[in-house]
Design a protein around this nucleic acid. Structure first.
Length: 510
RNA sequence: GGGCAAGUGGCGAAGUGGUUAACGCAGCGGACUGCAAAUCCGCCAUUCGCCGGUUCAACUCCGGCCUUGCCCUCCA
């Protein structure tokens, strides 16, 4: 397999760089996870899916990947939300952590190797605060501990701004007690009634930025390979993480490659909780299959904005159908068979195999170039066209050798789709709810038409459908197109799409 | 106000200093089909926000302008 170099865009240097992990063949990757006070929305999902895809591609490329994603399970937002709901903050955090997994699993986001929680690392965080105080880059103020940004010369290197440029913004909160308006909290004193942990500076809780510095280096080691998150985390979150970690360690870099995804927008405006224009993944999954959501999220390069709309998801659905059709077409030929002994290849089949490999290389080249999933999808469409053309040739003959090739092609195709997490769910999983409707179709038949059906009625929806399909085949043979079309229409109405192919009837749920 | 991106066909979206500007959706014509669907073949941007500049050559590099978005506050 050909191997060009893998390039990634590093926010730290603002350019694409060759990606070389610190340790060959092993990538250590940290992704900022959610604050567990709510269901995740599509914007959160984009980060999850994008970095999950990057992880999958790294694995595909032969790297071992250690993937860490945290849960911020103590935070002002959690405390406030818990107060509103009259729920214990830790119970609320635990609840939304479970809900997080339901959505992430549905979106086929692989679970991390470690999912550390902030509340389980209080000791380590206090340790870092102590260290920063000892180095005099932090100071105590009425039970709070602040990091002194002026003491860290590299402050601003990730966001590409100087301290003075940041200060020129009018939105920095003014707290007269702080030595510098940009100093941020490492340890936050608890107000009465708030959850707290004892500390040398009084009862309190960790500042948000601290947890990621601590947990990432705990599980991945200082100087790990990839630190990722949404663009809105560049400043101040990741900037502050760098400041703390590098000041504490007296070393750099804390993380080697910084990757940030662009936002999901709605009418060109950032989808965000404060704007109230967000769409909850849980709701979207009611209407769209996970593959369609993933296809949508990966149809644009991860650093570009992506505008949400029903039309855009519908476009993703239609587009993805094309890939799924090809997948089904291959399955019809191979029928899930295992590899068969190779026979003599026709010249056309040899060319076909050659073309397929070229498309696989196209996919890899696209992903090698800063994970260009939009271009990678184009390679999959090209691959699909090769397959469709080959199978639909006039002179197509289903010899063992051809089946053998198609099984291999199927593996390639599935493996590339798998990198994008786009393996379609079972589109033929009929719920019991179909049984009643199918029965209704059968009982609605005229007595004459019913004679085409065998005696007795099964209860399984699949069996009922098979019966109807057979009856329709019989009707078509008798050129009773009135009945055949009527059955097709009625099935279509309940969401079962019928297609007549040279290899027989084919159906799927829509 | 400061910083950073982006503006490509009806829509979505890649891409490149120089042979025909990917791919998908939609549309049109054809093949296949009893009809459909799926699939295949063909057509569909002489043009890449606007104006200058560099160059033998720019949509691609530089400058200015316009428009939009993001960050500077919790946010993926």
């Amino acid at each position: 397999m050909h191997r060009l170099e893998l390039k990634v865009y590093n926010t730290l240097t603002r350019k694409k760089e060759q990606f070389v992990p610190k340790q060959p063949h092993h990538v250590r990757m940290y992704v900022c996870g959610p604050t567990t006070y709510n269901f995740i929305h599509l914007g959160n999902a984009r980060a999850l899916v994008v970095f999950d895809t990057i992880r999958r591609y790294l694995i595909y490329r032969g790297f071992r990947v250690t993937y860490v994603q945290n849960f911020t399970d103590i935070d002002d937002k959690i405390i406030n939300r818990a107060a509103e709901e009259g729920e214990d903050p830790s119970a609320l955090a635990a609840r939304y952590t479970r809900e997080y997994f339901r959505d992430a699993d549905a979106l086929r986001v692989m679970r991390a190797n470690v999912h550390p929680k902030a509340t389980e690392h209080i000791e380590e965080m206090q340790e870092m605060v102590r260290g920063l105080l000892a180095k005099r880059v932090a100071y105590v103020l009425d039970g709070d501990v602040y990091f002194s940004v002026r003491k860290f010369p590299g402050y601003g290197k990730l966001s590409g701004r100087t301290l003075d440029e940041m200060l020129s913004g009018a939105r920095v909160e003014v707290d007269e007690r702080k030595r510098d308006p940009l100093d941020f909290v490492l340890w936050k004193a608890a107000k009465p009634g708030e959850p707290s942990w004892d500390s040398p500076w009084g009862p309190g809780r960790p500042g948000w930025h601290l947890e990621c510095s601590v947990m990432s280096s705990k599980y991945l080691g200082f100087g790990f390979d990839i630190h990722a998150g949404g663009s809105d985390l560049i400043f101040p979150h990741h900037e502050n993480e760098i400041a703390q970690a590098e000041a504490y360690q007296d070393d750099a870099p804390f993380a080697r490659y910084w990757l940030h995804n662009g936002f999901v927008t709605v009418n060109e405006e950032k989808m965000s909780k404060s704007l109230g224009n967000f769409f909850i993944v849980r709701d979207l999954l009611q209407e769209w299959p996970p593959e369609v959501l993933r296809f949508f999220l990966l149809s644009t390069h991860y650093r570009s904005p992506l505008d949400y709309s029903t039309e855009a998801l519908d476009l993703a659905r239609r587009s993805f159908n094309r890939l799924r059709n090809t997948l089904e077409l291959i399955d019809e030929i191979t029928g899930g068979q295992d590899v068969m002994p190779a026979g003599r290849l026709s010249r056309e089949a040899g060319d076909f195999r050659h073309q397929v490999l070229a498309r696989v290389a196209e996919f890899e080249d696209a992903m090698d170039d800063d994970f260009n999933t939009a271009l990678a999808l184009a390679a999959l469409f090209n691959l699909g066209r090769e397959v469709n053309s080959f199978i639909n040739r006039d002179d197509f003959v289903q010899t063992p050798a051809v089946v053998h090739i198609l099984i291999h092609v199927s593996r390639y195709f599935n493996s590339l789709l798998g990198v994008l997490g786009l393996i379609p769910g079972e589109g033929r999983d009929m719920g019991e709810e179909y049984a009643a409707q199918l029965l209704q179709v059968i009982t609605g038949l005229a007595p004459g038409d019913r004679s085409l059906l065998p005696e007795g009625l099964p209860t399984e929806p699949r069996a009922l459908l098979d019966m109807l399909l057979q009856a329709r085949e019989a009707a078509r043979k008798q050129k009773n197109y009135r009945l055949a079309d009527r059955l097709r229409d009625e099935l279509r109405e309940m969401g079962i799409l019928i297609e007549d192919t040279p290899r027989g009837v084919r159906w799927r749920l829509v």
